[in-house]
Simulated assay, not measured.
Amino acid sequence: MRPSLVRLVKPRRPERKTAALYPPLELYKRILRAHAIKLPVELRSLGDQYVKAEFKAHQKIDNPLHIVGFLTQWQDYLRSIDGGDWVDGKLSKQELDKMSPEQVGQLYELMKEAKRIEEE
């Protein structure tokens, strides 16, 4: 069948408003690449260590809902790094309320480490 006829036979998919999720390994590589290009040298090692630890910690997750949530959040992070939004980025009260106590603790530790690096 000619390609022009195939288009008539195949139903068209509706346009997606959100981008498809990257596979985990591709997302991981893109984040590390974005760190190398967009982050200052002082923050790059901290960011790389954090990303590596999080991806390693979630490597054995088999719950599809958790996987999609994890990948979605990291893809949003990648967009903020690429767009430069991370410089003035602040968490809203709603975002903070959605976090578990463990996540808030991790965020606090990350903040302390970032301040320590800034002071050096």
Score class of each variant (00 low, 15 high):
M1C: 01
M1L: 01
M1T: 11
R2T: 08
R2G: 04
P3D: 00
S4Y: 07
S4V: 12
L5W: 07
L5T: 09
V6F: 02
R7T: 12
R7F: 08
L8C: 02
K10R: 12
P11W: 00
P11K: 07
R12L: 10
P14E: 14
R16E: 10
K17T: 12
K17N: 06
T18D: 13
A19Q: 09
A19L: 11
A20Y: 02
L21F: 05
L21H: 02
Y22E: 14
P24C: 04
P24M: 03
L25N: 09
E26P: 01
E26Q: 10
L27D: 04
L27K: 01
R30S: 11
R30W: 00
I31G: 02
L32T: 09
A34R: 04
H35R: 00
I37L: 12
K38Q: 13
P40R: 15
V41W: 06
L43A: 12
R44D: 07
L46V: 13
Q49V: 01
K52G: 07
K52C: 07
A53R: 12
F55T: 13
K56G: 08
H58Q: 15
I61W: 14
P64E: 15
P64R: 15
L65T: 12
L65G: 09
G69P: 00
G69N: 15
F70V: 06
T72Y: 01
Q73P: 01
Q73A: 15
D76I: 05
Y77F: 13
R79A: 14
R79E: 10
S80L: 11
I81H: 08
D82V: 05
D82F: 01
G83K: 11
G83C: 13
G83H: 08
G83A: 14
G83W: 03
D85M: 04
D85S: 14
W86T: 08
V87T: 12
G89T: 06
L91P: 00
K93L: 09
Q94Y: 06
Q94I: 07
L96S: 06
L96R: 09
D97Y: 01
K98T: 06
K98I: 05
M99Y: 01
M99W: 00
S100Q: 03
S100E: 02
P101I: 05
P101G: 00
Q103I: 03
V104W: 02
E109P: 00
L110H: 09
L110I: 06
M111E: 08
E113N: 05
E113W: 00
A114D: 00
K115M: 10
K115G: 06
I117M: 04
I117S: 07
E119Q: 10
E120C: 00
E120W: 02
